[in-house]
Nucleic acid binder design. Structure first.
Lengths: 233, 233
DNA sequence: CGCTATGTTGATCCATATCAATAAGTGTGG
DNA sequence: CCACACTTATTGATATGGATCAACATAGCG
């Protein structure tokens, strides 16, 4: 039979599960397209759905005491808030669309059911969670061990590596959001970009050019044990 | 037959797995008692073992560029570095005994084998990883959204809740390590404890007394979405 | 007892936040 | 096509949280 949602069938999370499991998961699922700046989930809410971003982008952020910080951005063909879903615990982060986005919503009760019955699904979830967990640890290390200038330098080098080492690339997002992701203010980001000029960082609008990778690398001291394979964006 | 390691059999991670799986896991496992300040694992190393702390305590910490930060402490009847083990990726943290400690070492290859074949084990791993993941997210929020004074105040309130709301309790560990866990220097912790006097925090050595829970709570604004059920220690 | 660890206090410095003003886009409607 | 508003980024001035360096105190401990 033809399965619904063939696009997400190929995600690592769903690739190896049985047809029946996939059927169960997607039976009550639906696809929705949201305009920009739509809040999809709010921290503290019960996890009604597991989300899969198919197109667009979703920013995960958190609030406390009238402060807000951006945690990271989910790009297409990734899920988010898997941990809350399987544990059936409140979301720890809120999520809003950055641009018009198409999203699949899978009822979390179904996710937990299939998780209980389909070993392949449990295994895929382990992989996904372990990756996320390690990413979160790396993020804490980044925050605790580095200054904001060092975090920025390493972020730029991560982008550089992501672009197949092209010395020129575009910043993926608004600078204010980048600043929040890196744990600094927009003003500080602006000054920090200037401060990296001496290591061959030239910025013009969204465009970044790294003219002295060696100098920047010497300064940034990137580490496989901190710098994620994927940047925030 | 009598199983080896009956103590760890009751851990959530091993409780529901088959006898055969448990046998496989523990066949090549061994128990070791280490003196204080022994480095058990070093970040960057391949994950040869999954560790279970049976007695004592193990501090997980991380280094970068000659800096060091304490991430958290593992207390008895818990495992550590599960994510590295199942993903077969390098440890992201180092671990050292804080005091004389008894530790079980389970060869990670066996852990991954059983994970592949025993669905109950995969499910238990999911629970463990999801908890750890959410804890790490909370940690990042704590660091990014709060000042060091606020982190300390919330830490004290977490201890208070852990002690069944006894207004008097002992700090679990060396203050310098507490400071590192909270992302601050020992000097700053010392001053911060003084700064909390006005909210009824009285410290004498390791002993803490909270004389005005309401004032401290008003200041700290604890949140279920940040403050873990378990403190670092 | 000293000796060494650990914690405290004081003085100072620095990174980063905050507040305020300006500039540079970006889109809208006339 | 331009004027205008509105958002976002930059720059400057200043404030402050927290780090650093140094001296001293205290507490375990051999």
């Amino acid at each position: 039979m033809t399965e619904k949602f063939p696009e997400i069938r190929n995600l690592a999370l769903f690739h190896d599960i049985s047809t029946q499991s996939f059927e169960t998961l997607t039976r009550a699922a639906y696809v929705q397209t949201y305009p920009p700046s739509t809040e999809l989930i709010t921290e503290g809410d019960a996890p009604d759905f597991l989300y899969v971003v198919q197109a667009g982008a979703v920013e995960l952020f958190a609030n406390w005491a009238h402060r807000e910080t951006s945690m990271w951005t989910v790009w297409p063909q990734s899920t988010f808030i898997l941990a809350a879903t399987v544990k059936n615990r409140p979301y720890l982060m809120s999520g809003r669309t950055l641009c018009k986005s198409r999203v699949v919503l899978l009822p979390s009760a179904d996710v937990r059911n299939v998780f209980e019955t389909d070993g392949a699904f449990a295994k895929a979830i382990v992989t996904e969670l372990a990756n996320g967990y390690r990413g979160a640890i790396k993020n804490s290390k980044n925050l605790k061990l580095r200054s904001s200038l060092e975090r920025l330098a390493n972020y730029l080098l991560t982008c550089y590596r992501q672009c197949d080492k092209a010395p020129r690339f575009l910043l993926e997002a608004q600078k204010s959001r980048l600043a929040s992701n890196l744990g600094m203010t927009p003003e500080n980001l602006s000054r920090a970009l200037n401060g990296l000029k001496k290591y061959g960082v030239a910025v013009d609008g969204q465009s970044v050019e790294l003219t002295d990778i060696k100098a920047l690398t010497d300064f940034a001291q990137p580490s496989l044990l901190i710098d994620d394979d994927t940047p925030f964006f």
